[in-house]
Amino acid sequence: MQKRLFILLVLLGQSLLGQGVHNFGNLQLHSKGSLGFHTDFINDSGFDENLGLIGFYHDESNLLISGNSSPVFFDFEMAVENDLYIEEPITIDNSLNFIYGNIKSDRNNKNIYTKISENAFYEGAVDMAKIDGHAAVEGQKLFSFPVGNGDIMRPLLLEFIDGTFLAKCAYFRESPDFPESFSTGFDINRKDAYLSTIHTQEFWNLKTSGMIQVTLNWNSDCNLKSIVEEIEHITVAGWNKKNEEWTNLGNFNYEGEIDEGWVTSNTFNANDYEIFTFGFLFNIKNRDSGNYALTPNGDGSNDFFILEIVEEYPTNNLMIFNREGQLVYEKTDYQNEFNGISNKKIIQKGQQLPEGVYFYILEIKAHNLKYQGYIYIAK
């Protein structure tokens, strides 16, 4: 009898308002109870001690959760043809069941999210039924965010290495170079020496703390085969907030094919990064030994640093470093003209480099190639 009275009150409130169910503090679902909303839900008071199942259902239009107070659900399911929109954070304490439709929120507002609690789980997430906006998790060591955008789901798997913290994640099907959802971009040309290129089609925004690993997945829609030929050249790239550059976070593990697979990063400090996407490693090759001797004394023998590969790939970039790791020479579209003279200010520009061992890198970005080795400069 008590359960029947509760549902009657809800239906009465819906009829009187004409704009949805409006909670002012008198609603609570008890154990083994179930309640279905076929209209909007406006929550302006405590709604955080519920048990049982609450669902949102509509075959035609969208539904909305709004109000001044964040609702907490125990078991939650949804089958909303044109998506369930939220304007306040919602929390799931036990289970989230996607039947069809997305939970949508403004991805420009990180303060509106769907949170999965420590002992909660979800099921049924697919391309057309997921979180289209920010998802959050708290108290779980391993969690796959069921996030996506539009009609695709692109989950991110997070593993905490040293403890568990609150984490928020959203997926953006935008170029990280010029994202529509951020006031500033993440320049794909600013990257460490290990990265050949950065994926320009998508990225994830993950905000958390501690030492973590992340796993990103791809499918044929990502078109990675237009960039690399082998999956071992796919890595996780993160935007370093301090250095303002893309950093290779590693491919500790990977599996699949070039059209579909996943890659897991090395362990890293989440405090340094929030933006992630796929990075692509150089295909490192050496011709012959990859090491050369240079004797720039004008006798016509070994006076110049000759790399035969530049004849095949004239569009390239050569960098030469001394033993301290300082860049002493750099040339775009190198054509075998280096004769031991520096063009950098690390020493007096235009001066002959001292005798010794130097390390070189020749990048051919258009073909994802990198050649590297050593040069010995003798007098």
Rank of each mutant, 00 (worst) to 15 (best):
A378G: 07
F182M: 00
F6D: 08
N271T: 12
E159P: 02
T277M: 04
K115C: 04
N102I: 06
E88H: 04
D83W: 00
I275M: 08
Y254A: 08
S15Q: 14
G133E: 10
K365M: 03
E202A: 14
N109T: 11
L166T: 12
E87L: 09
F76D: 10
G52D: 13
Y122R: 01
I346D: 00
I42T: 04
F121D: 15
K345I: 09
I234C: 00
E118A: 12
I346F: 10
F165T: 06
S95P: 09
S342D: 05
S181G: 04
Q326P: 00
F6H: 04
T315H: 09
G55N: 06
L17S: 13
H367R: 03
L307T: 07
E87C: 01
G298T: 14
Q140W: 02
R173M: 14
F41M: 07
R323Q: 09
G148K: 02
T277I: 02
V147W: 12
A270G: 05
S226G: 12
E312D: 15
S61A: 14
S289H: 12
T114D: 01
Y334K: 11
G133H: 10
E337R: 01
R154H: 14
F359G: 02
T91N: 03
I99H: 13
L166Q: 12
D40Y: 02
G163V: 04
G133A: 11
E255Y: 03
T247C: 10
I341K: 09
G133I: 05
N189G: 11
I90W: 10
Y57N: 06
E355Y: 06
L51G: 07
S66A: 14
I42C: 01
D127C: 08
R4G: 02
I90K: 06
Q201Y: 12
V228P: 00
N240S: 05
Y273A: 10
N119K: 13
A120Y: 04
L216W: 01
E308A: 09
G46V: 06
N253E: 14
G148V: 03
F203S: 07
I364C: 13
S181H: 15
V214D: 06
D192E: 07
D127A: 15
L8M: 00
S15C: 06
A378V: 04
N336H: 04
I377A: 02
V228E: 05
E257C: 01
E324I: 03
V214G: 05
I198W: 11
Y122V: 03
I234N: 08
D162E: 15
T215C: 07
N269G: 01
G350N: 10
F321C: 03
